[in-house]
């Protein structure tokens, strides 16, 4: 019995020391990590919607159960008035969720930019959805009409050229953009 106690006590001390060390380092790194995550968010917001003075998370007001793949709504402000809306949507792609930011400008009612944040699509095919040349295909599209994916050079204003051999990923991103677009039209456009 005494032996077991001794062994238990030894492990307790080892684990305790380990905990102390981890706690100490965590105290140093956690504010840096939190700052980084915040900065990343601000940077990607600025990428899809440049020029905002302040961006506020208003998800609690706008995201409802039935919105499905819309997970976050951030509103951009300039001089105290809302000027743009940045959505986070999570459509399902070829092999998982494709987390995408979509931003609209309230004045022009156009898409100012999109950005795929996270995806697990096939490297070389669907993973290309992260590239800026694909994101640029959505730029300046109008918010008022649905977008559709095409495989040949687009002819209409509302057409998006699919990534070669990655139609499903292209459709998923477009579905995400369309869902955000509909939500935007329903909530931010005066009828």
């Amino acid at each position: 019995m005494r032996k077991e106690l001794k062994l238990g006590l030894f492990l307790l001390i080892v684990a305790g020391l380990a905990g102390l060390a981890i706690g100490y380092v965590n105290d140093i790194t956690s504010p840096i990590i939190a700052e980084q995550i915040k900065q990343n968010k601000i940077d990607s917001f600025a990428e899809v919607y440049p020029g905002a003075e302040e961006v506020k998370d208003e998800s609690s007001q706008y995201v409802k159960e039935e919105d499905g793949i819309v997970t976050e709504v951030n509103v951009a402000y300039k001089a105290g008035a809302p000027c743009g809306v940045i959505y986070t949507v999570e459509p399902s792609g070829y092999s998982g969720v494709v987390r995408t930011l979509v931003a609209f400008d309230i004045a022009t009612q156009k898409i100012t930019g999109i950005k795929v944040l996270n995806q697990t699509e096939t490297p070389g095919l669907g993973a290309n959805s992260e590239e800026s040349w694909f994101a640029d295909r959505f730029k300046d599209k109008t918010a008022t009409q649905p977008l559709e994916v095409v495989k040949q050079e687009p002819v209409g204003d509302n057409q998006i050229l699919a990534i070669t051999s990655a139609t499903i990923t292209s459709k998923a991103v477009t579905e995400g953009v369309n869902t955000a677009r509909q939500h935007y039209v329903d909530n931010f456009v005066q009828q």
């Binding site: 080892v14 380990a18 980084q36």
Partner: peptide, 30 residues
């Protein structure tokens, strides 16, 4: 380190260092 519990002790030590490295990398090499 007592012989009979050396493996759990080793694992606790290794896991501690891995966690430390993980946090440091997250903070300084994101």
């Amino acid at each position: 380190i007592p012989d009979s519990i050396r493996i759990p002790s080793f694992i606790v030590i290794i896991a501690t260092f891995v966690t430390l490295i993980e946090m440091i990398m997250h903070a300084f090499a994101p």
